[in-house]
Design a protein around this nucleic acid. Structure first.
Length: 471
RNA sequence: GCCGGUGUAGUUCAAUGGUAGAACAGAGGACUCAUAAGCCUCAAACAAUGGUCCGAUUCCAUUCACCGGCACCA
């Protein structure tokens, strides 16, 4: 039974056309917390992330720099790869690039299988083209049927052949699937959004681009005029990274996956990707956990507004585990979060300096001065209540639970007054309770947790874990 | 425009058809193991209007405000 406890978790793959931002850091850290938790529960864990590297935008950006697209993405990908160290992610994190040859092959196999099963067909696709912009225009760029930049020019209708995926064939299968798996998407109201969408009827979507216009993609098998549309290939990463289809034993060991994704990803992850899996006869994902976005003082973060908060800045100011703490507890897990430097400072002082840091100091000072030997702590496991939150991926509630335990411990110290009684048993009991808290923090704040547990082992008050920030 | 959601103390959140809970921030107090931290006490809120009900913050309707989704954008 305990032989094959395996757990597969992934983030989405961000597009490599910008610096990693704090929203993606949140997704990674959430996933990392769950991955670490599962590992501590005895699971073998596969933790996947990576980068999405094809498509028009990257192609144009690379051309803009006069650079080969591959060279361009190679340059950018390091900014994402280094997140493992920057954010303190699990060492054995798997990082997949959609330009990896193994992934490309897998995506092509996936395409072929979809095709063989009758879910891919070729169709003339009408695009609207503005001769003034020399660009294709979408409907929302048009005002009274004319390009908003060139209202005196007629829009030209171009036709090109594209491959399409028979998304429409999956209306009923998807709705049935959601019905039988009401917890498929967390939080569940997110599932309603796409359910409504599907009930209104699905349209097939284009999954290829003409190579002569946009060559930066994976070749469509058996047709050298087309490349795959970027997200079709990108979604396949969730199975190519665990060896599909070459190592089916590996694949079957890990699949299905728990996916962490942002709220802009619901349709792609919960509908399109699931339909694609159905098309090739693979089981659906296990669950999809949807997080909200992070705003700054009520506004979207944007380079143009100069209000982007980078994870590196937060770490520089408060340290890595403080960033992980903010993300895990101070940020809303499922709704949008409004951050500001002021709020971060208040949260830091209240909960890390006055809360956790001070608690460790006072307990360990008592232990160090009153106990001649370190307290022997027997092996620790997660509290039932804490585990029940984490089993439901409720990271924020889990953290609140730990902080409640800390509050109880502070109150207990006050009640027992061990600095008067000098009662060794009481102090040893406090140390054991602190050890439990330290252990509980392991998935969330691994460094801090290790410091607490080793301070207990050495029976020494550690240096201030989170000094107050008074400036 | 269509569909869905939200509106609770200064702030962030919770619960509930019958005295609305907490955390942080604020005021005060006794203590001292601790990072002027911790503990105790205090102050502070149900968007508006109408309806159902013995009774509504909770259910219904309307209004106002805010947010999300409405597909080829990766």
């Amino acid at each position: 039974m305990s032989q094959n406890k395996s757990f597969y978790i992934t983030t989405t793959l961000p597009y490599v056309n910008a610096e990693p931002h704090i929203g993606f850091a949140m997704e990674l850290i959430h996933a990392d917390i769950i991955a670490r938790y599962k590992e501590l529960c005895g699971f073998e864990v596969f933790f996947n992330t990576g980068t999405d590297e094809h498509g028009l935008k990257l192609y144009q950006k690379a051309l803009g720099f006069g650079e080969d697209p591959q060279a361009y993405v190679d340059r950018y990908v390091t900014r994402f790869k280094e997140l493992k160290d920057v954010l303190g992610l699990k060492e054995d994190l798997h990082f997949i690039r959609t330009t990896d040859s193994q992934h490309k092959k897998s995506a092509q196999n996936f395409w072929e299988l979809c095709d063989k099963n009758g879910y891919i067909y070729k169709k003339l696709y009408k695009t609207k083209y503005c001769s003034g912009c020399e660009l294709e225009r979408l409907d929302h760029d048009l005002i009274n049927g004319k390009c908003f930049l060139h209202p005196n020019l007629d829009i030209i209708f171009l036709e090109e052949e594209n491959y399409f995926f028979k998304f429409s064939a999956f209306e009923k299968p998807l709705l049935d699937f959601y019905k039988n798996n009401p917890d498929f998407v967390i939080p569940n109201y997110r599932l309603n959004e796409i359910r409504v969408l599907i009930e209104r009827g699905l349209e097939d979507f284009s999954i290829s681009r003409l190579k002569e216009k946009m060559p930066w993609g994976i070749d469509v098998p058996g047709d050298d005029k087309h490349v795959m549309y970027v997200w079709f290939d990108a979604l396949v990463n969730y199975i190519s990274t665990i060896g599909w289809p070459d190592s089916m034993r590996e694949f079957e060991k890990w699949w299905p996956v728990v996916q962490f994704a942002g709220k802009d990803q619901i349709r792609q992850q919960a509908a399109m990707w699931q339909a694609m899996l159905m098309a090739v006869g693979l089981p659906p994902s296990r669950q999809i956990v949807i997080h909200g976005f992070i705003n700054y003082e009520g506004q979207k973060m944007a380079k143009s507004l100069g209000n982007v908060v980078s994870p590196q800045e937060v770490i520089a100011k408060y340290g890595l585990d403080a960033l992980r703490y903010f993300i895990a507890r101070e940020f809303n897990q499922f709704e949008d979060t409004d951050v500001s430097w002021d709020k971060l400072k208040i949260a830091y002082n209240a909960n890390l300096a006055n809360g956790l840091g001070n608690l460790v100091s006072r307990v360990m000072k008592l232990a160090e001065t009153r106990l001649s030997q370190p307290v022997i702590v027997k092996s620790l496991i997660f509290d039932k209540e804490l585990a029940s939150f984490l089993d439901k991926f409720e990271i924020q509630k889990a953290m609140n639970y730990i902080w409640m335990e800390m509050g109880d411990l502070d109150a207990l110290i006050q009640e027992k007054k061990p600095w008067e009684s000098k009662d060794r048993e009481v102090i040893a009991d406090l140390v054991i309770r602190l050890a439990q808290i330290g252990f509980s923090l392991t998935p969330f704040m691994p460094e801090t947790s290790a410091k607490i547990l080793s301070a207990i082992k050495e029976n020494k008050m550690p240096a201030s874990l989170f000094p107050r920030k008074d400036a």
